[in-house]
């Protein structure tokens, strides 16, 4: 076999090994979530970090996204004389796509990156070794509350994003362009089905898991990354990688889930 083929094979092998390690990471963390003892305090701390402190940015983003899609849809719908469909268009696009995806991307930028850097520094500074030496399971102590908080917070943040977005759309459509408020909400409630809500909810759940899983795994397994330095350069590299990878994972799984549910 040629050297190129061998190199390709070995890089495929290393990707598979790395995926396996990430899988074991998730399995170990899930075990500690399921098995007792349970502790509430670290979970609340992480919910505050991922959820509460992201609230403002989610509200602001939701408002403007709602406003801009109402603007865009109004401009298109008015050409076909179907302005009454504005509420449905804004509602459906926010609930099915924009809400879950944009919330996830905001959480990646705000919490995922910070989480990855924090865990990475803990790895570089031997703090994770110190935890293990104190007989404290890092999966239970560090990752279980983070993963749980991700699964709890991202759907709630998504719901808030969608709600604020709908009112942003209302402001542009009804207040600025004079669409009748009744048709905005009636159209929305007629077209948005349970399936759409389920799609939005299940996406946000999966995104919450993906974001925290990738951020924590990247930081925790920083020492396995053989493509560069281990110190501060390593932390900055894996943080960038975690942000890029989780964004791609969110967009890819978004397509996959849409295709599955539709």
């Amino acid at each position: 076999m040629g050297t190129n083929k061998l190199q390709a094979l070995s890089s495929i092998e290393s990707v598979l090994i790395r995926l396996g390690i990430a899988g074991i990471f998730l399995f170990e963390t899930t075990l500690t979530i399921v098995l007792p003892p349970y502790s509430l305090k670290p979970l609340i701390k992480q919910i505050a970090f991922i959820g509460a402190r992201s609230l403002l940015v989610i509200v602001v983003a939701g408002l403007f996204v709602g406003m801009v899609i109402a603007l865009q849809f109004y401009d298109t719908l008015v050409r076909f004389g179907s302005v009454s469909l504005l509420g449905s268009a804004v509602g459906l696009s926010l609930i099915r796509e924009l809400g879950p995806v944009l919330t996830a991307l905001m959480v990646i930028g705000r919490s995922g990156s910070a989480m990855c850097a924090e865990i990475g520094i803990m790895r570089v500074d031997n703090q994770i070794d110190a935890l293990e030496c104190m007989a404290i399971d890092p999966y239970r102590y560090l990752f279980a509350p983070r993963i749980l908080a991700g699964i709890i917070c991202v759907p709630i943040l998504t719901a808030i994003f969608i709600l604020v977005g709908i009112f942003g759309g209302y402001f542009v459509g009804v207040v600025l362009f004079g669409v009748s408020p009744g048709s905005y909400f009636q159209g929305m409630s007629d077209t948005v089905l349970n399936r759409d809500l389920f799609m939005g909810f299940s996406k946000s759940l999966v995104f919450g898991l993906l974001i925290v899983w990738i951020a924590c795994d990247k930081g925790f397994n920083l020492h396995l990354d053989k493509h560069g330095a281990y110190g501060s350069e390593g932390v900055s590299r894996i943080t960038t990688e975690a942000v890029v990878l989780s964004s791609i994972a969110v967009l890819f799984s978004d397509y996959l889930l849409s295709a599955l549910i539709l």
Binding site: N126, Q127, D129, A130, C133, M134, A135, I136, D137
Partner: peptide
């Protein structure tokens, strides 16, 4: 096994070179 190792580690203490204190 990791749980047995953790059990054993409750009887030891390790002081790292840089302290390895949790910065938060």
């Amino acid at each position: 096994k990791s749980n047995e190792l953790y059990e054993l580690r409750k009887h030891i203490g390790v002081a790292f070179q840089n302290g390895a204190l949790f910065s938060s």
